[in-house]
Design a protein around this nucleic acid. Sequence first.
DNA 1: GCAAATGGGAAACTCTGTTTCTTTTCAAAA
DNA 2: TTTTGAAAAGAAACAGAGTTTCCCATTTGC
Lengths: 221, 221
Amino acid sequence: MSEQEHSVNKDKRELKTYQEARLQNTENLRKLVVDAAATILQEEGPEAVTVRKVSQKMGCSTKIIYSLFVNKEGLAQQLYLDGCKIMAREFEATPALADPREHLLALGETYWQFAQRYTSYYKLMFGGAFGDFKPDEESLQGTVTAMRQLIYVVGSAQQQGLLSASAPADTVEIVRLVWGALHGVIHLQMGGHLGDVPSAYATYQQTLSLLSSTLFAKQDS
Amino acid sequence: MSEQEHSVNKDKRELKTYQEARLQNTENLRKLVVDAAATILQEEGPEAVTVRKVSQKMGCSTKIIYSLFVNKEGLAQQLYLDGCKIMAREFEATPALADPREHLLALGETYWQFAQRYTSYYKLMFGGAFGDFKPDEESLQGTVTAMRQLIYVVGSAQQQGLLSASAPADTVEIVRLVWGALHGVIHLQMGGHLGDVPSAYATYQQTLSLLSSTLFAKQDS
DNA sequence: GCAAATGGGAAACTCTGTTTCTTTTCAAAA
DNA sequence: TTTTGAAAAGAAACAGAGTTTCCCATTTGC
């Protein structure tokens, strides 16, 4: 119930070492482990994130990971949620243009940039690169939260009557559709099926512009 | 050059056991190994395809796999090409409708069915489920070959002037675009991001119909 | 101050891909 | 036909993964 109240530890500075953190509560320890795993993830890729390597970076036994998270998948779940937070931050940082269609294009560009800048996170979350990792209910909720800008722009376009009659009536259904199309190009590129990055990016932009001009009845290009 | 001519072995019946095949040339042996791996792949999924399990099913040492293929990835390449053959067969089996748009819809449906019926193959080929497997040049060529129906229908639609002006001019570019969008929905579904199969199928059909009605200027629905 | 319980560290277990070493086998030369 | 050498294949070993077990230290409650 009361977590923050009786904070016995007098100093609340950033915890750096495992030996410091073990004196604190498990929540701080979890955060420290996830941070270590995230560093390895971004520096060496998803397949480099191993329980041994994380515990080694922490300077502790592998047992800790299994005590804090149930197994490696539990750690992956947390990294997934971290990735959702990053993605949400990126989406929120994109300027919300007045025209919903322009806004959608901007968000689509942001999604591509996220996949390029945080490739390891993307592969972990949506690429199926982390063994047989499947997102649980909380992770799925995190995805929806991260994409709420996308849901918002589609919803407002619907309310303004800007969408084509051929588009689905359900807001989320449209987002799924857009997400699927954009993800497909990104994932095929990551799998090496679409040649080099510029070539794949061209296809991505074609997909994005085609989608937006289909969904929006009034196109201005 | 002349492979079939001087077939010394008098009986050409199907080789079943490893002991029979070891008497033959390496080509037969390779085929036998790939068949064993394919069986495991389809019966137990991509992650169950291990060198030990394949060699065990063959009744031989793991060394054989490394002699015939360089490593596990070499075996994966062969399974990839097998998957391309299956996909090509499915595409060829779909009736070629006179209307290119209808034909495209039919091929899209076939692609979904392929992903559902041969899920393990799909995950191996396009799902990134086989470690850090990346298709080599031959595999990429196999993909193009398997999708030549798709290239054909788009090309003929272009020649008949049926495509919208907003569609890219390059035939292959359009195919990449369609492929990406359809793959995205399939892959998100396999990753557990789109709920149950019927729900994902609905999104898939929406994507397919939206794509076709955008690409084709004249829509009849 | 002491006993019990909890938590963490080292090592072991199993399974993976891969390599090495030894044995077998087969074919050609003597 | 016998011998010899090379090629092929099997068994076992190696390294690294996820996970579990066992043991000890620390802490906690009386």
